[in-house]
Amino acid sequence: MKKTLNFIIISAITIAITACTKKNDPTPVYNPANLASLSVEFDNIVGDRTLTFNNTGSLYTNTAGEKFSISKLQYFISNIKVTSTSGNVYTVNQDSSYFLIKGQDKATRFAKVKVPEGDYAKVTFTIGVDSLRSTMDISKRTGALDPSGTMDDGMYWGWNSGYIFFKLEGNSDVISNDVNGDPTGKKQFKYHIGGFGGYSAPTINNIHTVTIDLTAGGIAKVRKDRQANVHLLVDLMKVFNGSNSFSIAAHPNVMFSEFSTKISANLKELFKHDHTEN
């Protein structure tokens, strides 16, 4: 009898404590095996406006004063890593850490990963595909990394084996109709940024890693019973207006070239934490 009573009392206390815990929401003990969902949302914007494709009726304007529309946007986000408020660093299993964000397909705007329950103050990710994966056996290149995409939507260079990390295309009247612009007269700009550093000799490396501090906008509280979402704004205007600002007229087509390193440096400045939904 006494035993049963003891049990009931202990149970009651335990329930009470658990209930309290939920309310106060203390940080769970860090356990790399205790995984829960976290998503990072890549919300593409253009300066002060939302992203609209083929916005010929209402053009965007960069700091060079050039008016332009956007027709395509795709980029790889990979190798997600989180840092907890107490300094624990967790790297997501690499096989589950490659995401192709397609501007025209809203469903692709989330990078969904599993990380240990905890409170996170920093999110780190790579813009593009790391060099190790870029040189791996083809059987390790599935899902977003399958090089079978079409020429238009593809994110892979066959002739110079490697992924295109970031692809932005659009139109601007400032583009000339000659070989320095768009000889087809369509006034199209194309930025295809890639280059993982070379297989046997060092070549251009446009892989950049970005760390976002969540402290000001709200830390991510990752728990099994909810879905924490880190909402990032990705400002495409920074492609032109970042630290290495350039004019579309001067560089309407940038692919595998030295100038691509200037643009890829700008890409680091695209990502800004807006808020976190816990």
Binding site: T135, D137, I138, P147, M151, G154, Y156, G158, W159, N160, S161, Y199, S200
Partner: peptide, 21 residues
């Protein structure tokens, strides 16, 4: 390395070039 001008470092990735060219 494959191709006259290099660029492809793995035979398994080489056929992508002629198929898509």
């Amino acid at each position: 390395a494959f191709m006259w001008g290099g660029g492809v470092f793995d035979l398994d990735l080489q056929p992508i070039v002629p198929i898509t060219a």
